[in-house]
């Protein structure tokens, strides 16, 4: 990574030979993946294939056992001094995380704070790389803007439990956007939603896919994946089996394992 490219690059994700075990179970067995700046990578695969774990290593919620992850050339969780990798201090890790937004399957909104307070919390207190913290007033203003963007400005004062699942997830997306991240991670964002609420969330993500933010999405919504992805990544048993354009992966998969997985999950989705 030369400094010249770093200036212009925004949100390049490079995952190199990442391994991760929980106890005796190796959930990631040397995964390598590159997501171009502004790109949309959708990771699909059966449960337990390591999709979510891979996603969580990108913002260092999971520490990797081997391999490394870089955002715009900077290692996640480590600093380089000479030929040594130093584990970063908490504050530095938090700084890195402010550039990576994350949306969870169970929303994880703070239930004791209103929708607006949820969105406006982090910009006031999180240490940000090269940017000042926002004042409370500025954070509120920005929060209202973002809630407006996800269509929930009129629910700014509502507590999460007073909102539907779809609305909660849209607030969670607004919260993740509040720090202007280069990269957004979505961990099965619609899996906890009623079928009729799924689309209002997917529509918001579709809008984001058009922006310059890099998106990495783990999902089971194959139709959505085909619409929105630049790259579809198929994972199974801790490895990437196959990756390519949605066209290539969905209509002409090369691997037998990919074919058998899609034959089970895609059929109903494509018949509509």
């Amino acid at each position: 990574m030369s400094t010249a490219t770093q200036e212009t690059t925004r949100g390049l994700v490079e995952i190199t030979k990442v391994r991760k075990s929980f106890g005796a179970v190796e959930v990631l067995k040397g995964v390598s993946l590159t997501v171009e700046p502004g790109g949309v990578a959708v990771i699909v695969g059966p449960s337990g294939s390591g999709k979510s774990t891979l996603l969580r290593t990108i913002n260092h919620l999971e520490k990797v056992d081997g391999g490394f992850i870089a955002i715009d050339g900077a290692l996640v969780g480590y600093g380089i001094r000479g030929r040594r990798l130093h584990e970063l201090r908490e504050k530095e890790i938090l700084k890195q995380r402010t550039e990576i937004g994350m949306v969870f399957q169970n929303f994880n909104l703070f239930p004791h704070l209103t929708a607006l307070e949820n969105v406006a919390e982090a910009p006031v207190v999180a240490p940000r790389a090269g940017k000042p913290r926002l004042s409370k007033a500025a954070a509120r203003e920005r929060g209202l803007e973002l809630l407006d963007r996800v269509g929930l400005k009129d629910r700014a004062g509502a507590y999460p439990r007073q909102l539907s699942g779809g609305q909660q997830q849209r607030v969670a997306i607004a919260r993740a956007l509040a720090l202007d991240p280069k990269i957004l991670l979505f961990d099965e964002p619609t899996s906890a939603l009623d079928p009729e609420l799924v689309n209002e969330v997917l529509d918001v993500i579709r809008e984001l896919a058009k922006s310059s933010t890099t998106l990495v999405i783990v999902t089971h919504e194959m139709g959505f994946a085909r619409d929105v992805a630049d790259t579809v990544v198929f994972m199974d048993q801790g490895r990437i089996v196959e990756q390519g354009t949605p066209q290539a992966i969905f209509t002409n998969p090369q691997e037998e394992r990919t074919r058998s997985f899609f034959s089970k999950v895609i059929e109903p989705a494509f018949n509509i």
Partner: peptide, 25 residues
Amino acid sequence: QGQLEAAAALGIPAWRRSTRIVLPQ
């Protein structure tokens, strides 16, 4: 636990996580 994860993912510092997110709940 998801509350702590969400707060950590947002870069909220540890002391603030305890006092603003965890303790009130």
